[in-house]
Design a protein around this nucleic acid. Structure first.
Lengths: 208, 208
DNA sequence: TAATTAATCACCCCATTGGGGTGATTTTTT
DNA sequence: AAAAAATCACCCCAATGGGGTGATTAATTA
């Protein structure tokens, strides 16, 4: 039979931490093995708690949640970390995910969804709040009204891959001079005059 | 008061299409305004149907779902497109999202989740199946055991941004020769000997 | 404490590149 | 018929990139 999902909570606000603790502790199949108010206090003992899932806040005194992720992963390589925070800034979300968070929920998330998400991460899923999912999906989307032509976009992509003019020419079966010409036109359209700036503008406007 | 959510289905399999049509048509607050078995047949009339949401399959005769997305968006700039498919390949998912899909569900998704997701996209959300969310989140995650040092990673990031050695040197307040040296070490560690290959390897191994 | 690893800087060489001009021809799309 | 996209050409020249070899000083780990 399945044993309870072991959960640790790291959250500096007492009220919130106790709230989650109560919610999870009183749900069939779940168990709160420990809860801490900071990364520092958790670091000392969490290796013994051996939780399956950590609910982690971002804003905390001492080490913040983002920086705590890799450290916690080092202490518990197989743990799943679920971020539970009020922050919805793109930067924080992507940093958290890049650092190894398995999911990202905002604090307005209904209890049922939190409980479900804990189970979901434990099973290898990647739960997100609706608004987070929206931002994440948006981050993939290309700008639909690019000023660049198809060929120019194609070449800009290669530039972003670090290819030299001659490498691009070979790959697209066109002359070196043609690549040159396209890049010049790209520069004019994007109002830049270097590869680095072209790449930056391309990324900012999601042209690639 | 709210009017029904107007849905169009584009799906080549008759059974599946009729199934969705029945499911959605019989749900309070939802309405199937039209359903087509291909992009081509939809293209002729969909502008008049004015759906809020399109459920779109990927594998279809003629124009496939991925390529249909931008075309549909051109016909109906404000429509939300929800991909509903059996495919779970990373490439397809990211292409679909890049092309402007608002959400991505796999066909094993329970009816209730499909219904909920239609509402969610209409409200600007980005619904995903659990397995898709997992892949999407994974795509953000950096490799935790990179062979590169912190400084090297930092420099590789700049290289990926198209910066020249001297630009990197300026930004990091170090000598040009130091940048050179770091890049040489990066090349050795990644077993490459050009910027383009370094970037490729870095991306493939999620070192950046 | 000893041994690595990381981070910093230096100078050799030289073919290639990148960016700035200016201009032209041929498809494709509108 | 007009406009936009894609192709190629040749001028100039400083800067860049990659290969070698080697050294000094932290910082980290064994």
């Amino acid at each position: 039979m399945n044993r309870n999902i072991q959960v640790t909570i790291i959250e500096d606000d007492d009220t919130i931490r106790n709230g989650y603790s109560f919610l999870i502790g009183n749900t069939e199949g779940y168990e709160v093995v420990s809860s801490y108010c900071s990364y520092e206090s958790a670091a000392l003992k969490i290796a013994n708690d051996k939780p399956d899932v950590i609910l982690l806040d971002i804003e905390m005194p001492g080490t913040n949640g983002i920086d705590a992720i890799p450290k916690l992963k080092k202490l518990l390589p197989h743990v799943y970390i679920l971020i539970l925070t009020v922050y919805e800034s793109e930067k924080l979300i992507f940093e958290a995910l890049a650092n190894g968070a398995a999911g990202y929920l905002t604090k307005n998330t209904p209890s049922a969804k939190i409980i479900e998400s804990i189970k979901e991460v434990k099973e290898g899923g990647g739960p997100m709040s609706i608004n987070i999912a929206k931002m994440v999906i948006k981050s993939f989307q290309k700008n639909q009204e690019s000023p660049l032509s198809k060929r120019e976009t194609q070449i800009l992509e290669q530039v972003c891959n670090g290819k030299s003019r001659s490498q691009i020419a070979k790959e697209l079966f066109i002359d070196l001079e043609t690549v040159r010409s396209h890049i010049k036109n790209i520069y004019v359209k994007l109002d830049v005059n270097s590869r680095a700036d072209a790449i930056k503008t391309a990324r900012e406007n999601k042209l690639i």
